[in-house]
């Protein structure tokens, strides 16, 4: 087959994927108020963003939420992966299946089920409910990242540790944790990004006491164009990109 046809096709699709992103970034530096015409370079939308106190507050809230959700889900996810990898226990398949279902089910199904639970137990919608929800949808991703790392791992190491008199906890701390460290970091970064970007689940389980960035953006862009959103979107893009490169770098380096 012609060598150029596949290449041209790949390039074309990548172009389509990236054009909107490039447009967004370029327009974030646009001085024009209407949002469609080019009015020269300007940083005014970035300035407007920083002067918007509610926006800055929402930004901090989101960062704090993503930070805590990523940390908690990495902790629980890593323990889950270790348990699935090391132990034989009743209902292992069920556990695996439940994680798979969480990962595959449409976000909105998870969202309303959590809303129903929180209202039933009388939990005030806000930071805590958001945290519980975000940890839940991040969990399977951390588990599979760590499991992937564990699957290529020399089984004789934990046995050796045991023979040398280490108990489960000591063995986990001194042998397993160092081995899965890159996966933990990658999982943490993935969880952080998932949490920071989530709209669907957060729409249901957040309350007025804790406003987060995606929901603020959502309420802004539903009606018309908001140039500030271009600037905000660009910042988020750069941020996600840095996180992604970081996590890939960690994973690649650990493979060598």
């Amino acid at each position: 087959m012609n060598r150029w046809l596949p290449r041209t096709y790949l390039t074309l699709v990548y172009l389509l994927l990236y054009v909107p992103i490039v447009v967004l970034v370029v327009f974030s530096f646009n001085d024009s108020r209407t949002g469609y015409e080019w009015g020269g370079l300007s940083l005014r939308w970035y300035e407007a963003l920083l002067n918007n106190r509610a926006m800055v507050q929402a930004m901090w809230n989101s960062l704090w939420l993503a930070l805590s959700a990523a940390t908690v889900s990495t902790l629980i996810g890593a323990l889950t992966a270790l348990a699935l990898h090391r132990y034989r226990f009743r209902g292992k398949k069920v556990l695996n299946g439940m994680l798979f279902v969480v990962m595959m089910s449409p976000e909105i199904v998870l969202a309303i089920s959590l809303l129903a639970l929180f209202l039933l137990v009388g939990l005030q919608l806000g930071y805590v409910s958001l945290l519980l929800a975000h940890v839940t949808f991040c969990l399977p991703f951390v588990v599979i990242t760590v499991m992937a790392r564990l699957s290529g791992f020399d089984e004789r190491l934990p046995e050796a540790a045991r023979d040398l008199g280490a108990n489960d906890f000591t063995m986990t701390r001194t042998v397993l944790i160092p081995v899965i460290m890159p996966a933990l970091l990658a999982g943490w970064l993935l969880g952080f990004t998932l949490s920071l970007d989530d709209v669907v689940v957060s729409t249901f389980v957040s309350g007025p006491s804790y406003e987060i960035l995606p929901l603020r953006i959502y309420s802004m862009v539903r009606v018309g164009l908001k140039p500030e959103v271009n600037a905000l979107g660009t910042l988020l893009l750069v941020f996600s990109l840095v996180m992604l490169i970081l996590s890939q770098w960690i994973l690649l380096r650990s493979k060598r």
Binding site: L24, I217, L236
Partner: peptide, 9 residues
């Protein structure tokens, strides 16, 4: 990895 809301916008 990037915000889907922002990309839709």
């Amino acid at each position: 990895w990037t915000n889907s809301l922002v990309r839709t916008y």
